[in-house]
Design a protein around this nucleic acid. Structure first.
Lengths: 274, 274
DNA sequence: AAGTGGTCTAGACCACCCC
DNA sequence: GGGTGGTCTAGACCACTTA
């Protein structure tokens, strides 16, 4: 093998399968893991290929993978790269390793738990419910002193405020109140947020959140949330406040979601240690 | 450099510093990163060394690290190993990289956020408060059908039940109700849990939890929790239910913590993506 | 153009598991 | 002892940033 990175479109550097290799990871005929024009890193492609086969049931829970060194030749990648992919799948709860024994597909229950807090949309998808929104407010206003501090902008700067009732199958579940610095995403005021995702707009505008700092607490329902949530003031609600930052450390989104206590439950799983 | 792993106690393979190297990571005189008898992986040692210097202020927030290739020679490790350490520190919120520019110490605020849900003990430490416990119940009982299912044991098997009021500076904050399969940790009934940590006992018994699946919700306070929490029934409480599993997939701990809504707030930060 | 992080490789040794 | 994952290395090319 040549050293360094091969020209991504010239060399086919592994034999590989006709749909199924042994009991291991299978690849489609005529097409290897490596899509010559795929800009994604190899380890991402490898991870996606394996995860897809797990999701589709080609690799059932508990199945042992071929040995790393075998997988390497099958996929045509180095062991370091393969292990990076597998490590990624461990973090996603898809695979588990056992020193001296091998790699195993994780139990289905492990895969159903998000490794960070499950978002409203993810919950809906997992449960097969249809998420919808009713917009209460969508307007540009001037930043208060507190908001200016949070976003790191001048007080009085334009801030877009979006307040929505989030529903599952038409049943009101939560009130989402989000704020974005207006000049980060031009044209926000003209978007129909009963359908659109605020997060998608941020990503499209090049302000993708990468870190979310969250606090979660239980409170009594505030009077202004009682009507949209069909609750009495004082009834238990779960509030999650998040501050999201992009890769350049800009605060791009500040949101507070207020869930009906009896209609929503946050889920997460995490690895303990260090 | 020789190939493979050098004998960990024979070769000193890097020059290195007299307390401070340029503006970069400093190492103590007479002692390099590599403790010959340290069984920890090199990348863990490297990560700990850097994080220590960040915590102690030797590397202030925003400071740029020396280039990877320079750090490698300073620390006497390969670039792959160094990058593994740095990647680990990214996940812990200690460092950030900028393609083409360099590595930077993350803002202090980022480091104060736990990457998984902050535990009661961690909260106490962060705030400088003293965590204490009052034991309500500590007894061995027979597993109910539900408990048997959760733990994967036979109904009627011995289960240790521990119920405590958790306090900060003497103020009641939460009621913690935990269950452990009794034969996993012999002698549990004789431990004084007003001081001891149940988690520590599990670790000592070789049943260290590695994964915790958690659900979080807001409820009205149950009658039996009203007195220990000094609340009225129906007042908002935050409940977190956790199922912890060890490396061999055994369920080792099932717990429910009920926090006073007005006295506790969960904190977490996580990386979005994929 | 030089410097820096991001990706990738081939090959080595170590530690654990099981026969 | 053979197989398997875990760690580590030296060196290469690519992509972004800065001057």
């Amino acid at each position: 093998m040549d050293n360094g990175i091969r020209p991504r479109g010239s060399t086919m550097r592994h034999k590989l399968g006709t749909g199924k290799d042994m009991d291991g990871v299978s690849t489609s005929p005529q097409r290897s893991l490596i899509a010559p024009d795929n800009p994604e890193p190899l380890w991402v492609q490898a991870a996606e290929l394996i995860e897809r086969q797990v999701r589709e049931g080609v690799l059932p829970a508990g199945r042992r993978l071929p040995a790393e060194r075998d997988l390497c030749t099958q996929l045509g990648i180095s062991r370091v790269t393969l292990r990076r992919a597998l490590q990624h799948l461990v973090e996603r709860g898809v695979m588990r390793s056992s020193h001296g024994r091998g790699w195993y597909v994780a139990a289905r229950s492990d895969r159903e738990w998000p490794n960070s807090l499950e978002s409203f949309t993810e919950t809906a998808r997992r449960k097969g419910l249809v998420p919808t929104s009713r917009v209460l407010r969508a307007e540009v206003k001037h930043a208060s002193l507190d908001e200016a501090d949070e976003f790191g902008v001048a007080a009085g700067a334009d801030v877009f405020l979006l307040e929505r009732v989030r529903m599952l199958d038409g049943v009101p579940i939560a009130v989402d109140s989000s704020r974005v610095v207006a000049n980060l995403v031009p044209g926000l005021a003209s978007v129909d947020f009963s359908r659109a995702s605020l997060l998608d707009e941020l990503v499209a505008a090049g302000a993708e959140p990468v870190v979310a700092e969250s606090t979660i607490e239980a409170r009594g329902c505030a009077p202004e949330h009682a009507e949209p949530l069909q609750l009495e003031p004082g009834d238990p609600v779960l509030t999650m406040s998040q501050t999201m930052t992009d890769a350049t450390d800009r605060v791009v989104l500040v949101s507070t979601i207020t869930y009906r206590g009896d209609r929503y439950r946050l889920r997460t799983s995490f690895v303990r240690g260090s």
